[in-house]
Design a protein around this nucleic acid. Structure first.
Lengths: 351, 351
DNA sequence: ATCACTGGTGGGAGCGCTCCCACAGTACCT
DNA sequence: AGGTACTGTGGGAGCGCTCCCACCAGTGAT
């Protein structure tokens, strides 16, 4: 008898059963009320809600997770060391959008860093244990095995910045192609004739798309694309400097530069300065990301802004849909969805 | 590794029971192996481990949480909007320490922001549901109800920066008193005679302690403490400017200023500049926090560094101890522990 | 009158684990 | 010989929930 139901009024947390007894209904009915099922009469619902309030009942998540086979949690996985996470406003903006969109739901967000091998090991274990219902993946490199792992474990996932044109995961992206186009179109409209492009790392799909936008904008304006005006960078300031140096040596008469990121634009600006080139008088400069750097540069940098916060929201929307879709039946016609949000050109003094 | 073998029946994840069958032992024995109990013979342990590997068994956390009444997760609660979290390196350093210390354990870290009322509401629900085994509290204001809520729910918690000398929660702090002392002693040793102090918000315990250190350092050096040399700030740049303006008007002949934060020191510096006061020639300046601001100021700012990362580690240590202590018996002599880590003065050109 | 239905409801049967008691085996005392 | 004290081990009894089937009115159609 000691081990049996001697816990009626003890200090422990109330259970569904106790709420049911208090409300004079069955366990199933309380469960329905808690989960917002419509199949409950108003009177019963009110009685149950009263009992819940009186007892201060809070559902036991572990029990629910076990019985229903879901966790009500999703993970935002950042395959980078924490340092970068804090350094780049990208993540902070993304997190804001994600948090906002999630605040209407019961879902809990986990932030997981997987920069080191050790951390990745832990993450793999974590995912294998199905401790989350879905995963948000940001900043993934082309050769990352994480997406495959997620597919194999059949965990719903949404990636920001698809890895290629044939991304298998549901993805959210900003319109890198359109962003590249708009930068170049802007420069053309300002009367620039010889526009160079410093690209990002070309194993990043988005960087490629910006190059595509650059090419097509010129082509559609009836210009010929001079491949020697396209110089690869690597998203770093140093890379921007190197590329600019090369370009300047090759084409001393260029009159505009479109850099694939603000950071690279900052590097380019230094080189231009040192060469005595005036911005924007001699050379117009346009960056990408519209980061703090752009606003604080001298002169302030025209830059392509991505709606990062909105991307965060969109990722959550897609992920929740995918989780919900998977719930009733494991099959279903899984057509992958890809959202693309448009960018905006922020025009400043540098162009 | 050989992954999926001929798994039980369905395609689902293997359970303890299946591992037990495969290894030819009972459920209890597998559980003991999984949980590292010493009461298992080497032969049996090996057999179980083999079965685990073959089946790719990963424990079901929900089931474990339900049965054992623990979650193996702790929360880092930041009662601030996310914006501040990203803006201040304090959090990033803290998180690094916490993450490092946690990486040896099975514990999962959750990051929870509770800046808005809405978010706090959710947090309260979350804690009431006991979804974490313990809580790390950073940056808590004196009148915050959160600590009481935690106490009431009997959730182990560690606070960084105790709210008062009689903090009821286990706490980790840096030696604000010693830090204040060392700043003043340094200025005295440099021959400064009239040292002003711009304090932080005095409802923050740490700020008070820095004032105490300021006072005692002067006193112990045989100086009299002039209360008019102590001017309250509020940790902001603007507050630093205001305080400096007041002080300068009151004591045009002061030759040193100890600011309770780098940010306030930056504000003070502006006022001194505008007044034509040279740093350090006319007035020596010392800040607190040793943040990026200090390193980049002109001239570089002498500042008191707090071992924030180490504080993060200490918080985890204390929290894990507290969680472990609570496990066997809910009673036990709960003596509160308070760790205080020492600071270090980083001397630069401003003093 | 019977036969569908419908909206509501109760409660059994698990989910996969930990806890703990029972008990076999061995070893070392009286 | 029996007693005592271990070390290992198996498995029953839950943990608190969700799912789902059974069931009970009522309501209208037949």
């Amino acid at each position: 008898m000691a081990s049996h139901g001697a816990r009626g009024r003890s200090g422990g947390r109330p259970t569904l059963e106790e709420v049911a007894a208090r409300a004079g209904v069955g366990r199933g009915t309380v469960s329905r009320v808690i989960n917002g099922s419509p199949r409950v009469s108003d009177a019963t619902r009110a009685a149950v809600e009263a009992a819940v309030a009186e007892l201060g009942y809070v559902p036991n998540t572990a029990a629910r997770a076990l019985a229903a086979n879901r966790t009500d949690a999703i993970a935002l996985v950042v395959p980078e060391p924490e340092t970068r996470f804090f350094a780049e406003p990208y993540f902070s903006d993304m997190l804001r959008g994600v948090g906002a969109e999630l605040s209407d739901t019961e879902m809990q967000l986990l932030l997981i860093f997987a920069g080191s091998d050790r951390e990745r090991q832990r993450l793999a274990q974590y995912l294998a244990a199905h401790r989350v219902d879905g995963v948000l993946l940001v900043s993934v490199h082309a050769d990352d095995p994480l997406p495959d792992l997620l597919a194999q474990l059949e965990i719903p996932a949404v990636i920001s910045g698809p890895r290629s044109a044939t991304e298998t995961l549901t993805s959210v992206d900003s319109d890198n192609y359109g962003g590249g186009r708009s930068a170049v179109e802007h420069l053309l409209s300002r009367g620039r004739r010889k526009i160079a492009h410093i690209t990002g790392r070309l194993d990043v799909y988005g960087a490629q798309r910006r190059v595509d936008g650059y090419r097509d904008a010129l082509r559609d304006a009836g210009r010929q694309v001079d491949e020697l005006l396209i110089e690869p960078g690597d998203f770093t300031e140093e890379g921007g400097r190197r590329a600019m140096t090369t370009l300047l040596a090759r084409h001393p008469d260029l009159d505009a530069v479109f850099a694939g990121s603000d950071v690279m634009a900052a590097g380019a600006r230094q080189v231009l300065r040192e060469a005595g080139v005036r911005i924007p008088d001699d050379v117009a400069l346009v960056g990408y990301d519209d980061s703090a750097i752009a606003r604080h540069m001298d002169p302030p940098l025209t830059s392509v802004r991505q709606p990062i916060e909105e991307m965060g929201r969109a990722m959550i929307d897609l992920l929740l849909t995918e989780i919900a879709d998977r719930r009733p039946a494991m099959s279903r016609g899984l057509e992958r969805r890809h959202a693309v949000l448009s960018t905006e050109l922020e025009v400043r003094a540098s162009s």
